[in-house]
Amino acid sequence: MEEDNAGDVAATLLVQLQGWSAGLVEALPRIGVALVVLALAVLAVAIGRSVIARLGRRLRPNLVEVLQLLLSVGVWLVFGLVALTIVFPSITPGSALATLGLGSVAIGFAFKETFENFLAGILILLREPFKIGDFVECDSVEGQIERITIRDTRLRQTDGQLVVVPNHDLFHNPVVVRTDRDLRRAAITVGVAYGEDVDAAREVIADAIRAVDSVRDDVHDVQVFAKAFASSSIDFEVAWWTGSTPLDIRSSRDQVVAAIKRALDESGIEIPFPYRTLTFKEPLALGREGQDGDRREAAE
């Protein structure tokens, strides 16, 4: 009985293998045509990438890579569906697209953030709100842009640290592009004593700033405004224009502070420091008088 069952199983497997072999032989021409279609897909991708590279010489290299990637995906999708319908005639393009659509929805939910960063990266590359080398600030992160990829943007902070920012954050949050223009305004506060002449101090400060090499008073004039009555000084708001990089701002501020201090000293204008007045409820013995009194009490 067991020998009969084993023989039946072997016969069934043999019939199945013969059927598969016959189906494979029958499908060989279709497989050959499908391989030709895939070879044409490789050729089409190569030609398309070459055309995009030539037409996109004025575009960002990263944007050219994105367009080449999208072209490759589209070509392989179309030619792959054609090859699939050739090998399996029972599969229609409509059913293949429907299956692909359901799979895309599932993948979309699983990789939602990845697709958001991908689409944000494409929009950033197309809109070009900032470029490689710009200093930007976004959500308390500041640095120089080194690279823009499909998923993220890489910033190098002024202390040398690298920050990888998802493109979704750059697309949905306000971004300050500090080097959008060649010049940027810098400002400090300068205080002079209450006993000094305000107009004279203003002129001394303005002349001192104009003499600094890094100050671009040929484009925008220096601005000096009396700002407030502080606790021990009249405060001036001092503004001028210089280079837009962080190093330009720090270097120019250093030169301006030194120039103002030197000019005020030479003009005899006091830069005050805080004064403190102490009031006591009872008189205090001061100086030698207090020491003599202590000695008399000790002798007694």
Rank of each mutant, 00 (worst) to 15 (best):
L71V: 10
G56T: 06
L40S: 06
A39V: 08
R60N: 15
G48T: 03
L69G: 13
A53Q: 11
L40R: 03
R54D: 00
E65Y: 10
A53G: 12
R49N: 07
A44T: 09
L67E: 03
G56V: 01
L38P: 08
A44V: 10
V66N: 00
L70K: 03
V42C: 11
L71H: 10
A53Y: 03
A44N: 05
L38W: 11
R54V: 14
L71M: 09
L55F: 09
R58M: 10
R54K: 14
L71N: 05
I47L: 15
Q68L: 04
E65I: 09
V42E: 13
V66R: 06
V51R: 07
V51I: 15
P61L: 02
V66M: 06
A39P: 02
I47R: 12
A46H: 14
V42D: 13
I47Y: 14
L63P: 03
V42T: 13
N62T: 14
R54E: 02
I47T: 14
S50C: 15
A53H: 09
N62D: 15
G48Y: 02
A39F: 08
R60Q: 12
N62C: 12
Q68Y: 05
A44G: 10
R54C: 05
L70E: 08
L69V: 04
L67M: 08
A46S: 13
V64K: 00
L55H: 07
Q68R: 05
V45Y: 01
L55A: 14
V51P: 04
G56E: 01
V66P: 01
A41E: 03
L69D: 09
A53V: 10
L63Q: 03
L40C: 08
G48F: 04
A39Q: 03
V42A: 15
G48W: 04
R57S: 06
A53P: 05
L55K: 09
L40W: 00
A44M: 09
P61K: 01
L59V: 10
R58W: 11
A53I: 06
L71P: 03
N62I: 07
V51M: 09
L38F: 11
V64P: 06
A44K: 03
N62Y: 08
A46I: 14
R49E: 01
L40T: 07
P61G: 01
L40Y: 01
R57Y: 02
A46D: 12
V64A: 00
L43K: 04
